[in-house]
Write a protein that binds this DNA or RNA. Structure first.
Lengths: 330, 330
DNA sequence: TTGTACGCGTTATCAT
DNA sequence: ATGATAACGCGTACAA
């Protein structure tokens, strides 16, 4: 287990000073080709690579981004993680994946990330309350925060997400064209964003036509919770008095609802009840669900975020337009 | 954006030397309660937290573990990521999630991780060839490597995984009891582990009874690949000459196979063909699949790994027994 | 118990 | 173009 070589040692072997070694590894530094070649040869021989820890200490930039994730019952999170890590890595950044669970809340996770000097903290669709981020310990300094793939309107915290208003407009236009008129909405755990996001836009849209939306409540975001909410609804509402279309806050809830409709209640979709999801999670395209849903522009979202992190774009909240994906469920 | 406070500055405010501040934050250091209290008060006031970067540079330990992941088409990976990050965090470690894709191979990812001085690299079920890790640049120094949730027999690289031999024994015993006698196996991309793992044990078991196993090949590990492999098999083999049970290398392949059998071929499971998976991924329990599968002991696996990382257990390859989960598909 | 020199490996800045 | 000095913030070893 040989110790790693340092710039100093490489310099000695190459017969130059350690600063020349540094320059050989610094793009655009002034150094002769001869020196660089000598250094590179010595570096190769000693298997030298710059120590990023020491570099970070000196430059005060770790090229590390903490990515906060919760809600692991939703397979869509995997797609988000994949896209986010890929985009970060393409930029020479690396993701510190932080599992936000009952043992670690946002505030402590941010403090920990700060101790590690991360360049930024990305809240990847995590659930939090507005008050949470107002903690006094987060006031001064601290890493820049970003919200990704979640409706958010926190002052000073840029968010990149899918445009809920346009999305719900697209969805409602489609439903109206198909003649649906007794809508229901299944929402997840209540947090601030809920009030600003999908649920509210959906409700407002129908309200403008004088139609009230039935509310189904599921928590957490999981197949089981979606299924339970649907069971409860069916139990409480006799066949004649039911909604004719259910829009869910995300696909995983829709999957739960669909499975109850088809496999437990023996109802058929969309004739007995249509179902619409949100996200276009991978399973939604499978024959077992074939769910009409709204695809988030994940690629453009992570690109936009990385542009912000790299300073190529101002740190402003931005919403991107997604795309309605028509399948047989609605 | 105030600068972070340093131990030096806290010391000044507390009227002690900076080393006393360090001691106040070092468990088990010799320091009087009076001094510690003074330091803590000052630290609180200045919102001081030790800089882990500087600490790591000095101690040569970052408390960071690089976790390599690929195969994002498999939702089971999310469960593994969740369990792994949770276990690491419980130990005061943090996961550097590295997305192994076409832009980043294992060797370069390991070199990058090494530059960041990670305490260890965990290969979380990633696909790699034996030769890959024999790269010359990985020889000396470098972070300790571990393989998790994947059959592996690489010299010097401890692996923690589910016991494939016992698993296949359990599965085959069950299948024999149910009278199945024309087995098939769907395997994923060919790598070293395939030869040592599930596929080989399954084949060996039937070979000992003089029965040959039909081979279905899918690549990569995805629903689409599993579906395609099943389509190809059905096209090539007329109803009378088919296997009566298919065991898949993992659940995601089994899901693809099941969906083709039920939704495309109109066959019924298990009467026309039984299907068995491996992993017990979350969707397997849903009514849309109801897949008989073999549950990996994820909790114990990650616990074991963390025990190794923390030095509470020798760095030896270990296999843990899983559990057959009986559902309607077989 | 507390204070001091020195090192961790790199980068920024200045002098040559 | 190259060498040298200081600094990044903390830990270890030793002395007081």
């Amino acid at each position: 287990m040989k110790k790693r070589a340092t710039a100093q040692e490489v310099a000695q072997l190459a017969g130059v000073s350690k600063w020349t070694v540094i320059r050989a590894f610094t793009p655009g530094a002034s150094i002769t080709e001869v020196s660089r070649a000598k250094v590179m040869a010595a570096a190769e021989q000693m298997n030298y690579r710059p120590n990023l820890l020491a570099r970070s200490l000196a430059t005060r930039s770790t090229r590390q981004v903490a990515v906060f994730v919760d809600d692991f019952a939703n397979p869509y999170k995997l797609q988000l993680i994949e896209a986010t890590t890929a985009a970060l890595q393409a930029e020479g950044l690396v993701a510190l994946l932080v599992n936000i669970n009952e043992h670690l809340d946002h505030v402590h996770a941010i403090l920990n990330a700060d101790q590690r000097q991360v360049d930024a903290v990305v809240l990847l669709g995590t659930s939090f309350r507005e008050e949470t981020l107002a903690d006094s310990r987060l006031r001064d300094g601290g890493p820049p925060l970003f919200v990704l793939a979640r409706d958010s309107q926190l002052a000073g915290i840029p968010a990149v997400s899918c445009d809920s208003a346009v999305a719900m407009e697209d969805i409602c236009r489609h439903l109206a064209a198909r003649g649906f008129g007794r809508p229901g909405f299944m929402s997840g755990p209540r947090t601030l964003s809920t009030a600003l996001g999908r649920h509210r836009h959906f409700r407002d849209h129908w309200a403008s036509r004088g139609i009230e939306v039935a509310e189904l409540q599921a928590s957490p975001y999981s197949h089981a919770a979606g299924a339970a909410a649907m069971r409860a609804y069916l139990a409480a509402n006799p066949p004649g008095a039911r909604i004719d279309v259910l829009v869910c806050e995300n696909d995983i809830l829709a999957h739960g609802a669909l499975d109850v409709l088809r496999h437990e209640a023996g109802l058929s979709v969309p004739s007995d009840m249509a179902v619409v999801g949100f996200d276009d999670a991978a399973p939604s395209a499978l024959p077992g669900y074939d769910l009409t849903t709204y695809r988030q522009p994940v690629g453009r979202m992570v690109e936009t975020l990385v542009d912000m992190l790299s300073g190529r774009r101002p740190h402003d909240t931005i919403v991107l337009r997604g795309e309605l994906v028509l399948r047989s469920s609605a």
